[in-house]
C-alpha cells in the first residue's frame, strides 16, 4: 500500500514514540485526582494527548495527506553526524584535555560537515576562533572553563 504522506506517518510515529517514552518513565508517579493533582497528573494528560495527535498524524499520512508535501526526500547524514559529533567531541574531551585543544579539535571536525571542504582553511579558522573564544570569553568575560586536563 502506498503512503499518502510519508512525512505525516513519520511525524506521527515520532509523536507516538515520545508519548510512549513519557508514559513509560512517568508510570510510577502518582497521578492524584483533579482536585489534588499529584506529580503524574499533567504529564499523563499530555502524553495521552500527544499519543492521540500522533495517531491522527499516522492515519492522515495513510489515508489523506498531501502526497506532494509529504515526500521526505534524501537526508544528508554527513552534516547531522558531524555537527552533533563536534559537540560530543567537545563535551567529552573538555575535562580531559582542557578548553583550547578540545575547542580546536571540535571546530576542525565541523569544517568537514559541508559540501565544500577546505582542510587548510578549516584548521586556520578553527585556530583563530579558538584563540578569539579564549580571549573574549575566558580572559575578558571571565567564564570558567577547565584549561588543562587531569
Amino acid at each position: 500500500m502506498r503512503l499518502r504522506s510519508a512525512r505525516d506517518v513519520a511525524v506521527g510515529l515520532v509523536f507516538l514514540g515520545f508519548a510512549a517514552l513519557f508514559w513509560w518513565f512517568g508510570r510510577d508517579h502518582p497521578t492524584g485526582t483533579a482536585a489534588r493533582m499529584d506529580a503524574g497528573y499533567f504529564p499523563m494528560l499530555l502524553s495521552a494527548l500527544l499519543a492521540l495527535v500522533g495517531a491522527a498524524c499516522v492515519l492522515r499520512g495513510l489515508f489523506a495527506g498531501d502526497p506532494e508535501e509529504g515526500r521526505i526526500g534524501a537526508i544528508a547524514l554527513r552534516p547531522v553526524a558531524l555537527v552533533a559529533g563536534a559537540v560530543l567531541l567537545f563535551a567529552l574531551t573538555l575535562d580531559l584535555v582542557g578548553f583550547l585543544p578540545a575547542m580546536f579539535a571540535s571546530l576542525v571536525l565541523v569544517g568537514f560537515a559541508g559540501t565544500e571542504r577546505r582542510p587548510l582553511e578549516s584548521v586556520i579558522a578553527a585556530a583563530v576562533l579558538t584563540g578569539f573564544g579564549w580571549l573574549v570569553f575566558i580572559r575578558l568575560l571571565g567564564l570558567q572553563f577547565p584549561m588543562t586536563g587531569f
Binding site: V83, A86, V87, L88, F90, A91, L92, L94, D95, M103, S106, L107, V110, G111, A113, G114, E116, R118, E121, S122, A125, A126, L129, T130, G133, F137, L143, Q144, F145
Partner: peptide, 28 residues
C-alpha cells in the same frame, strides 16, 4: 562564506551552553 560562519556559530553555541552550569551533560 557560510562555511566560515559554521565553526563560529558552533563555538558560540558550545560556550553559551557550557557556561550555564559548567556541565558537559548540557552539551550532550
Amino acid at each position: 562564506p557560510y562555511r566560515l560562519m559554521v565553526p563560529a556559530i558552533l563555538m558560540f553555541c558550545m560556550i553559551g551552553v557550557w557556561s550555564l552550569n559548567g556541565s558537559s551533560f548540557d552539551l550532550l
